[in-house]
Each structure stands twice: as C-alpha cells, then as structure tokens.
Write a protein that binds this DNA or RNA. Structure first.
Lengths: 146, 146
DNA sequence: TATTGTTATACTCTATAACTATA
DNA sequence: TATAGTTATAGAGTATAACAATA
C-alpha cells in the first residue's frame, strides 16, 4: 500500500496545504481563527439567523459556534438578539463592522481560490466538484455505520 | 461569497469526513494516532530507511516523526538502528510485529477507500487525481510567496 | 423530559525553540 | 558552523459532559 496514492492521505495533505494558504489571510492579516472566519463567512451573506443555521452552514459543533460567536461579538463583528420564537436561542447577525471586515478578507481569499483553480479546466472543475459531493456522501454513509 | 461553493472549505470538510472514516479503523480498533499510522504505512512497504525519508513520505515534521517512531518502537512495531553513514541519524525499519499490525489494518482502510471511490467512474477518478496534484502544486506556489 | 446554548475541564495537537551529538 | 534528531514547553484546538434556562 502506497501512501502517495491513498486517497484519504492525498486529500488530507491537499486540504492542509490549501487551508494554510487561506488561513494566512484571515489569521495572520486579520487575527481570526478558522472557526471565527467560518462563522463570519456564513453570516455575511445572510440576514439574521438562528444559531442552528450557523451550525449547519459551518459544519462546526455547537460549542465551537458558541465560542466563535462570543469572540466575534467582543470584537464587534456580530451581535446577538433574543429569539422571540424561542427564549433559549439567539438570533445572530453580522454588524456593519463585521461586514466591512468580511469585505476586506473575501476578495483576498477568493483571489487565492481563483489562483488554485487556474490549474484546472472548466470541465475538470466540474468533475472535481461533483467528485467532492459524491465522496462526501459516501463518507457520510461509511461514517453512519461506524 | 458562499461557503458551500468555496473550494478550500469544501476540501476541508471532505477531508475531515474522509479522515474520520479511516481514523475509525486505525485509532479505535488499533490504538494508533494519525502520525503513527502514517509512519507505519510509510515504512511498511520499504526496507530500512533514514528518518529524512520518513519525513518526506509522511509530510510530517521531524519532531512528529520522532515521537511517532518512539511510540511505535515502544509498541514493538519498528526498530531503530544506528546509521553507519551518519552517526547523528538512525535507520528505521518495521519489525515483524509492525508488519503484521499493518497487514491487519491495510485491507480495512483500503476497503474503505474502495467504497468511497465506488461513487466515481474510472475517468472521474483520473481527473480527480490529476486535480489533486495540480491544486497541490498551485498551493505550494501560493504558500511560497506567503 | 428534551432541547438550546454556555461553561468547565481534561486531553490532544501544534509550534517554537533549546539542546545533544555529530558532521 | 551546520545538521539530525530529541526534548521541553507553551499555546491552540478538541471532545465530553455538566449545567442553566426554556420548551
């Protein structure tokens, strides 16, 4: 068995390389953790959302979201409003400051994504995207049964 | 910007899902860490190798390799021999016990990989593999300049 | 009783660098 | 003076579960 051709290893190495490239922007230049960046990105395009939606959109655990939101709130990037429909929950939304921060970061990370994708033809990008979805679905099936 | 279509995010989520599926085998059933698993897999197909080769084959840092090798050695899976060509280094090789352990794990993780790949046609697999190599190369270029 | 979100805690990983032995 | 590998240590991230408030 050759590690170099083993898909899970190849994906892990690639994903780490790519994540590093992106994290360089949001971490070094803007002092966000990965979780904070994800939450900010998930909120930026939306209005006011429940925590559950943030969890779903970021694939983070509830306590990771809780901490990321707290940190973003301290930093003035998001705000929490009581949820009138459920006294236990919150409605979360990005503030103007948060939106402004996101709008600084987004073009930079998008440019990096675009540079990565330059290596692929449009057809290859389509196959890649479809492959990611199908592999994720298979992994989900595999994970279910343990 | 939509996180769901952002390649770095998609790769991170997929890679984590896939890694979990594989880690379930080597961690839960055989008590290996990710690094130990990688080192064992890198050594299993080879003879006696220098530490530098293990570092290269696993994309781990030298101190991660050092610890993983120590742990595997305590467990009787690898042994270290002094390098006659360089008194500072070691030659590392898998023991019969280590090989036997690897031969228990390998078919199980390969079966999982095969299940994942069932979702893709041979052509799609080729495109995926080429895409991984090209994206990794682009990420390397991006990482270099910071 | 179950669920939402927070907090506590212990554990694992990671990153940096100091250190030794040798080159 | 540089390199191979080890060790130390501090910081970050992760996982579990306990917990308060509400449903």
């Amino acid at each position: 068995m050759d590690l170099q051709t083993f898909l899970p290893y190849r994906l892990a190495v690639l994903s780490e390389q790519v994540s590093q490239c992106i994290a360089l922007v949001y971490r070094e230049r803007f002092g966000l953790s990965r979780d904070e960046w994800r939450v900010l990105a998930a909120l930026a395009g939306r209005g006011t959302v429940r925590t559950a939606e943030v969890i779903e959109a970021t694939t983070l655990e509830k306590m990771q979201v809780s901490r990321a939101v707290s940190n973003l709130q301290e930093r003035g990037c998001v705000e929490r409003l009581p949820d009138p429909q459920d006294g236990r929950g919150w409605l979360i939304r990005v503030t103007p400051a948060g939106r402004s921060l996101f709008q600084k970061i987004a073009p930079m990370v998008r440019a990096r994504e675009a540079f990565l994708l330059e290596a692929l033809s449009p057809q290859e990008r389509e196959v890649l995207n479809a492959a990611i979805d199908r592999l994720a679905e298979q992994a989900r099936l595999l994970g279910r049964q343990g």
